[in-house]
Design a protein around this nucleic acid. Sequence first.
DNA 1: TCCAACCAATAGAGCGCTCTAACGATCAAC
DNA 2: GTTGATCGTTAGAGCGCTCTATTGGTTGGA
Lengths: 337, 337
Amino acid sequence: MEDVARRAGVSRALVSLVMRGSPKVSEQRRAAVLRAAAELGYSPHAMARSLASRTSTVLGVLVSDLHNAFFAEVVDGLDEAASAEGFELIINTGGRSAPRERRAVASLLSFRPAGLALLGPVVPASAIAAAAEQGPVVLVSRSSRLSAVDTVNDDGQTGCGLAVDHLVSLGHTRIVHLDGGGGSQSGTRRRGYLAAMRRHGLPPVVVPSEYTDAAGARAVRELLASGPPPTAIVAANDLNAIGAISALEDAGLRVPEDVSVVGYDNTSLAALRHISLTTVDQPRMEMGRLAGQALLERVRGQRTTPVRHLLEPKLVVRATTAAPSPSTVLDTTGDPA
Amino acid sequence: MEDVARRAGVSRALVSLVMRGSPKVSEQRRAAVLRAAAELGYSPHAMARSLASRTSTVLGVLVSDLHNAFFAEVVDGLDEAASAEGFELIINTGGRSAPRERRAVASLLSFRPAGLALLGPVVPASAIAAAAEQGPVVLVSRSSRLSAVDTVNDDGQTGCGLAVDHLVSLGHTRIVHLDGGGGSQSGTRRRGYLAAMRRHGLPPVVVPSEYTDAAGARAVRELLASGPPPTAIVAANDLNAIGAISALEDAGLRVPEDVSVVGYDNTSLAALRHISLTTVDQPRMEMGRLAGQALLERVRGQRTTPVRHLLEPKLVVRATTAAPSPSTVLDTTGDPA
DNA sequence: TCCAACCAATAGAGCGCTCTAACGATCAAC
DNA sequence: GTTGATCGTTAGAGCGCTCTATTGGTTGGA
């Protein structure tokens, strides 16, 4: 910076003004400074700038698990919102372990970021509260009552309700839910399923499972071993649905002719023609964008009250759901297991 | 820091030594400082530290496209290598556009990172050379002759060779390749296919396609319309293979009974029981880890000569490949289109 | 007893920048 | 011709830390 100033024949302070795009610099000086900077290949040192100005253009992001494509897409949306406003993302992962996550948050905070986005964090609420004292915090796929933090979630309860409604409207009555187990949002989805079944006056059946391909297949095998098959399945998520479908096919049942299957998430998987899964869309990119916007609003001091985004899920009907076949319906009434 | 020093009854310099874990501090003073720091909730300011020490614990990462699960997994591996050594990742995306990528690199460099990882960059080589002057650079999914940059790539040529060898060993002779078009590494894969076919004395057939589900289906429809089907297909990648499979099935051909299909990448897709795709594994996490390690070796000054990782691909045999059925072989010989 | 050697601890400069306050210059107004 | 605004420009302190050089206090050997 010193060198640029000397070369342009001005003071360091003037170089600083030019670099910050200040309007109170005459055109000729500005040009001289920019030329000198270009000739010397100078570009401002972001960290020194941040230190001196006591501001930050960095957003800290904690991803509980980057393996998970869900979060990768949320990060994508976050990145879009951040880079549009000249902010950078500094990313750490927690590996789904609270102690590691804690360290990751501490490490992020040591950079004094303008704000913090926690994606599917597993740390206790107290840790989140502590982080919120250092600056704005936004949570994705996790709720909070703290007024200092914003949240972005999808409404899994409504989403599962949509799935059940769709199946009922096709004529299904024996609809089973594969439960997501310890996975995030599994409780919400289960409640949505139960509420919808009650609303339609149908008997709910919940089979424990997990958010994986293999678990979906296992659950279906257990289900088939325990009695006559249902006519429809509301799976824990897309992966789980795909596992369920393959187990159904292995057992000689056709999808959707014999059994309809609905997934959850609308991952890119679901759209593959070979799978063409009816599923509930969860707008991950959008969730990332909203999280980024919420954070930036706080950073800019435009808002101090918490925001709770609860995204409206949408049903995406593809090829894995259809009306139950008459024979199946007959079977069912003839054999009320 | 001042406050901590005062509270512990020592100088600022001593606090600094304790925070850096220096061995030349007496146990009692160390304890006093740590206690004072804990009481005041003090933690060192990473940017100020970096500025003063003229060192950085940040690695800049440019991801050409975070939408792409491939790169998300590479970032995952990179993160693993970096965080194991106390480094942080600061991430920017380029959106597959050279100008945007250039800006992203400039922005990353303004943080004076210890090193830079460029994942599938599309900027011209000159831009990479310019970045390499500022510090160590590692390239993933892109090659370079610059001695200042390390590279990590998979050996797509060998990989496609493995796929062809596998099919030939099953008895296939009419093996078609769906080409990846403008996608990265598509040329290498095509060359691998052509070389292997030549080696086996078989006539190569390359059908233009792309790295997508829909393109794979389209290519197969065109292929089927133009004459009798091949007995095997080496697809551009997994997604392309899945599209190909669904088009084959739509045409009434069974996989693998009538046509065998091999993918490329071994994405999580391929492992789904419902798909169970024979494919060539490209170790993305490992590539990220290697990239991180290469960068850190340079950062620590342990190496100044370039490293060129060319990862050995592995064939993963699943359920989409089998010996050609006798009837198909007969058909072929009877109708040499 | 004296000095070199060593150790824990510290003073103070400086990393690359921003920002406040002050500066000289220009100009309209009286 | 003086005043007061206004404007472009600058000096210099300071952001939170590290690091070199130095200090004072022990210790061990001659």
